[in-house]
Design a protein around this nucleic acid. Sequence first.
DNA 1: GCCAACGTTGGC
DNA 2: GCCAACGTTGGC
Length: 176
Amino acid sequence: MKHWLLKSEPDVFGIDALASAPGRTTGWEGVRNYQARNMLRDDFRKGDCAFFYHSSCDVPGVAGVVKVVREAYPDPTQFDATSEYYDAGSTRAAPRWFSIDVQLERRIEPVITLRELREHAAGALRELLILKRGNRLSVTPLTAAEWRCILALRPAAASSRAVQPAAGPRTRSKKS
DNA sequence: GCCAACGTTGGC
DNA sequence: GCCAACGTTGGC
């Protein structure tokens, strides 16, 4: 099983939108970068896990965990003349862009911020692609070790018997 | 709004 | 194939 990080702008489609989508599932549409397209088309497998990352917003960071529930298929928005992702140069016979479907596994609350990820930039997340200078790809792979390291920043409550809350002020009021 | 770092485009 | 111009991304 592979691990991924998928960026989305919460103003366009965020974790709230995914949580309220039918089946908590969405098509990952609108990717218009060839390198990202190649990964979606060739490398994503049913059952792969991905982080849902909020970008271009007040608090950039990892907002949830999703699972790939459908492998690559032609991105329908490329054929939709009313869509901002419309691509007149693409045909149904030879589609240029591809989507996958992902389902929300769990939210991560509070969001694991980019700042927080950077605290590990000299250590376990040294090679994490989104921390590399200038990496703007909206789809990037992670190693299993990177995946575990990030997940360990917000252990799932149900899976650990007595996780010590992080030291510091308790300002959270969210229920789990 | 700024700006660095990319990717894409198009002339040659 | 080269490369300058341009557009986009995305954090700050």
